[in-house]
């Protein structure tokens, strides 16, 4: 059973056991526009909640992707180096950024559910 949670920085977190897959939401991808470069974190890097984890750049601007929870990176998406447009084509699927081993699952409870995030985006 996997569950997806959302941050107010427009990251999504898909939780599967102790592992989380992280990416940016469809809303974020649309706001950024055409993604031309992505830098994902190296495997083994320790990330702190709210810290810079990845970089995503569109034609015009660069943005950071933040770690939604504490944890150690278990994988960066290798496909994004050659095909960063996957972030626009399938932001919440093939356009994932990285996976991490969650250090403290209680941090997930503070993140938004899909319904809460949908409300949050509506208010922007």
């Amino acid at each position: 059973m996997s569950e997806t949670r959302y941050t107010d920085q427009h990251e999504w977190v898909r939780v599967d056991g102790d592992e989380a897959t992280v990416g940016i939401t469809k809303y974020a991808a649309e706001q950024l526009g055409d993604v031309v470069f992505v830098e994902v974190p190296e495997t083994g890097r320790n990330l702190g909640k709210g810290g810079e984890a990845a970089v995503v750049e569109s034609v015009k601007a660069a943005s950071e992707v933040y770690a939604p929870v504490d944890g150690d990176v278990t994988a960066g998406n290798p496909a994004l180096a050659d095909d960063p447009a996957k972030v626009n084509a399938d932001p919440e699927g093939e356009g994932w950024f990285f996976k991490l081993k969650i250090a403290d699952k209680s941090q997930l409870e503070k993140l938004m559910t899909a319904a809460q995030y949908a409300e949050f985006v509506k208010g922007l």
């Binding site: 526009g33 055409d34 031309v36 569109s58 034609v59 015009k60």
Partner: peptide
């Protein structure tokens, strides 16, 4: 207008 629905890449 900074971009239209086609987006910067396609417009370029």
């Amino acid at each position: 207008p900074v971009q239209y629905p086609a987006g910067v890449l396609k417009e370029h």
